[in-house]
Simulated scan of single mutants.
Amino acid sequence: MTGAVPPADLMSPLALFLHADVVVKAVMIGLLLASVWTWGIIITHATRLRKINRETDAFEREFWDAKDVDAFVEKRGTEALPSARIVSAGLDEWRRSVGIKTTDRSGARERLTSRMSAEVASELDRLSDRLNILATVASSAPFIGLFGTVWGIMRSFTAIAGANNTSLAVVAPGIAEALFATAIGLFAAIPALIAYNRLTHGLDRLEARLTRFADRFHATLSRELEMER
């Protein structure tokens, strides 16, 4: 354990990593990579969710204010927004239903409900992609770090037995290296857990919002069906 190294330097994060056992190093590197991956997912999803909410506000406001729905959909129906896809799916199903010689209004309403509900579910599946990685890191990182800690402490006790010296100066560096692995595990897990809960909550709110929008649009199309002969 490089006794020539000053104690302050020996306890620095870099020194703890460099002097750690190869297994503990592998654990630390894996957890650091998981942390970087986690932050990439957090930033990407948080930015995308904020953008979608902002653009959805504008789209829905303009949609309900539009005098000509067909013209509005032709202009903005192809946008990569959940609300736009719901509108396109609803109108497509409505046109298919009224295109039949004898319109089955009850069946048409059921198909509209099914089609738009499926579109809402599809959008939520797409937006929640890779969130399971945050949950995995949050639940597994502390235990992976703990494995590195246990391994490092075992080696420290082995070193004590080999040196026949129970001095704290002998065992402290090894134990510090081992505990550093747990610290990195928590460093990866805590942001992942918080972000997973926050992003899941944001997606739940978006799902409720899209469901309300789909229900309102469904009511509009149902009234149009009543006018069909």
Rank of each mutant, 00 (worst) to 15 (best):
T102V: 15
L131H: 04
E228I: 14
A138R: 00
L10P: 00
A161K: 03
M1V: 10
T47L: 15
I190A: 05
G174R: 03
A178M: 08
T47D: 13
F143C: 04
R85N: 11
L18F: 09
R130S: 14
S122D: 12
R223E: 13
L112A: 10
F59E: 10
R198K: 07
M154E: 08
E55T: 06
S12R: 09
L210D: 11
A178T: 10
R54N: 12
E110A: 14
D57C: 03
F63S: 05
L221W: 08
A71E: 12
R54W: 10
V23H: 02
D215K: 07
R48S: 09
M154T: 08
A169Y: 02
R85T: 10
R212K: 02
G99M: 13
N197P: 09
E226Y: 04
A66T: 12
P7T: 03
R54A: 15
V98Q: 10
F187H: 03
L193E: 07
H45V: 08
T47S: 15
E60G: 00
V5Y: 03
T47G: 11
I160F: 00
L210R: 01
A4C: 04
R61N: 12
W39F: 15
T166L: 14
S83M: 06
A141K: 01
R209H: 09
T211K: 01
A20H: 08
R95M: 13
F180Q: 09
R48K: 07
G174E: 09
K25G: 09
F147C: 04
A4T: 12
A138V: 04
T102R: 15
F187P: 04
S139R: 02
H218F: 06
P82W: 00
T136P: 02
L10R: 14
H19P: 06
D21N: 03
R105T: 13
A163V: 04
M116G: 07
S88A: 15
F213N: 11
A26S: 14
L127H: 05
G107M: 12
D68A: 11
L10W: 04
A189D: 12
S122A: 13
L124A: 02
R76N: 15
F147E: 06
A26T: 13
A159T: 08
I184P: 01
A108P: 14
A138M: 03
R126N: 08
S222E: 14
A195P: 07
A135H: 05
A121M: 11
E177S: 05
M1K: 06
G99E: 14
A214S: 13
R109Y: 02
F147Y: 05
D92W: 11
I29L: 08
L225F: 01
V137R: 00
A163N: 09
V23R: 01
I160M: 06
M227K: 15
D204S: 14
T103N: 13
S97T: 05
D92R: 14
V36E: 03
R223N: 15
S106R: 15
V5A: 06
G107C: 11
I153E: 00
E228S: 10
E110R: 15
D21K: 00
W39K: 08
G90W: 00
L203S: 11
V36Y: 06
N132C: 02
R54V: 12
M116L: 08
M1N: 10
S122R: 05
L179R: 03
G90E: 01
S140Y: 03
